[in-house]
Design a protein around this nucleic acid. Structure first.
Lengths: 337, 337
DNA sequence: CCGAACTATCGAAACGTTTCGATAGCCCAG
DNA sequence: CTGGGCTATCGAAACGTTTCGATAGTTCGG
């Protein structure tokens, strides 16, 4: 493997000239620069990562802390991890994967050994021990999700409160006053995972404020659980005319299957909205109106914010991504038929 | 952050002594070693990763090449990535995540910049461009999956052929002669993904050899696709008494749901086996006999093999993991009632 | 009781960068 | 024609390890 000396020799210059030509930190004559670039290409030179880490104070690696809990939805998780890695590459950064217990303890390790320049936290719960750790470590870091105490943290997430309000308002505007809400698995709420709670609470508040009645139920991810959840809603709110689903894909398709079996037509008998879904709803039957969970956007922004922290000084703050409503025809108006 | 000089000063020894005490490469007096270990603990010393990479020829990082194709099942993929990361940690290795296009091009990049000591390839297809790359790069590498040409490669995977034979023999032993096989999504076979093809072909061959008739169908991952697939099997083989599913979890639960709807009891009317499934089948209704896809085992072994390559010299070879049969009561004998 | 063999430790070189300070050559104002 | 201020380049130090070779000190067989 060629090193900077080889390049310097090939181009007939000193190594510092090569370094400056490549980094652009000092002006180098065009002709010289060209010769150097040629040599780099011919020799397939790549700066040695270790040396770069050691001398420059940048490692060009970010830690991605991605624990998996019981309720973690693997596809969504995967989507986020992928989006983070892709976004990081746009800034010439690689991603070190820290999972399970390493998601917490590994952070200290990689930071103390100066292996990473920054941290991205995935799937934070309300009181996540990693937030304290991140504050303590003092490295550029961005949290995807909103923990209870955001002091000193930079956080990005979809505005789940806004998404909940958007869903409620849409339905209220269409004349619905009895609305069901199917949420995540019960364990998810118990664990204090933050976004399901944020969504649910904002949903209930907004509904109350708009004179709508809501029946809420979590739902396990099997057909019995789904049936139970749905029956529960019907029992609570027999005159329900609209349903919002803030849950994983399997549950949503099982619910649609159930509706189909029972001859409940969408949106004829029931208006349905898929809220904060990380998957595309247009292959569902029927396709559902959706307020998408923009994984790419969140992750891209998270990386941008981490880079900004690395570069200048960005004060810690919370950034909420504005929710959007995609109408695919699964809701209908009750006022004018 | 404390460095080795600080530790040396605190312990009253030279830095080389510290280094030897920690690496164990030369004998150090017990009393000295203790003092050094104390200093390490007090100062929270961690060797600087960059320096270690630069001087030692080990980076303690592995590249995990994990592309996502259209047909990739995210939960399974996640399980493997996780298992790799966990296994790597047991050898004091971290994992650099290379996804999408970077899964290929990133390999060259990280190897040329000496950022990684070895490579693990996930989800290789029959003619995966990454295999050529790995051969060319000449770094320790392990492939999870079996490409068409394994020359010069170290590969690990479940013995899918053996798994197929195991499933067939189990059913044949129980007296079944008409067997349905539901496979992955059609696109998976078109792409040349290796294990679905291996399983299917071995299954058909073994059945023929045992005088059993097989109807095979791929299946898309939605309820219409599942229904269509199942109806296709019935049409091909009306007297089918057993069904093997080599497909993802959602399809398997949809099939069970369908059987339930149609009043087909398991195993009363139909014996069912879940083949090479990365998930637990005991929460399915009913729980299914399964030949598990041992993600942890494969990944652990892959890491062991990579480490072996790093250490001494392991000749490239293919290692197949023996399949096991877990009986959860979803098959029954036709011969003695 | 001499030196061989071993043990515990140290000093210094090397790994491949980045970056600071120096300098050689040039242009142009005074 | 002197020298101040550029531009383009170079040399050398520094980053924090690992590891080779050297050296005191100790043990022990003959």
């Amino acid at each position: 493997m060629a090193n900077i000396h080889d390049v310097a020799r090939a181009a007939g210059v000193s190594i510092s000239t090569v370094s400056y030509a490549l980094s652009g930190k000092r002006s180098i004559a065009d002709s010289t620069k060209r010769r150097i670039e040629d040599a780099v290409r011919t020799l397939e030179y790549r700066p040695n990562a270790g040396a770069r880490m050691l001398k420059g104070s940048r490692t060009h690696i970010l830690a991605l802390s991605a624990p998996m809990h019981a309720g973690t939805h693997a596809p969504a998780h995967m989507t986020f991890a992928l989006a983070v890695a892709t976004a990081a590459r746009r800034f010439d950064y690689d991603v070190l994967l820290l999972t399970q217990d390493e998601a917490t303890s590994g952070l200290t390790r990689v930071v103390h050994s100066s292996l990473v320049d920054g941290i991205v936290l995935l799937d934070v719960s309300r009181d996540d021990p990693r937030t304290a750790l991140v504050r303590e470590l003092g490295l550029p870091a961005t949290v995807i999700g909103i923990p209870r105490d955001t002091a000193g943290l930079t956080c990005v997430d979809l505005d789940f409160d806004g998404a909940a309000r958007l869903a409620v308002r849409r339905l209220v505007d269409l004349g619905h006053r009895k609305v069901g809400l199917i949420g995540q698995a019960p364990t998810v709420y118990d664990r204090g995972s933050n976004f399901p709670l944020r969504f649910r609470d904002a949903f209930l508040a907004e509904a109350t404020q708009n004179g709508a009645t809501v029946a809420f139920t979590p739902s396990a991810e099997d057909s019995a659980g789904v049936r139970g959840a749905f029956d529960g809603l019907i029992a609570d709110l027999p005159s329900m005319t609209a349903l919002v689903m803030h849950c994983n894909e399997p549950v949503q398709s099982m619910v649609l299957e159930l509706l189909n079996q029972r001859g409940i037509s969408v949106p004829g008998d029931l208006s349905v909205i898929s809220a904060c879904s990380s998957f595309s709803t247009d292959h569902l039957n029927p396709p559902l109106d959706v307020i998408p969970l923009p994984a790419e956007l969140s992750c891209t922004r998270a990386i941008e914010l981490t880079m900004a922290q690395l570069a200048g000084h960005v004060e810690p703050h919370v950034e909420l991504i504005e929710p959007t409503y995609v109408d695919l025809g699964s809701t209908r108006s009750l006022t004018r038929s």
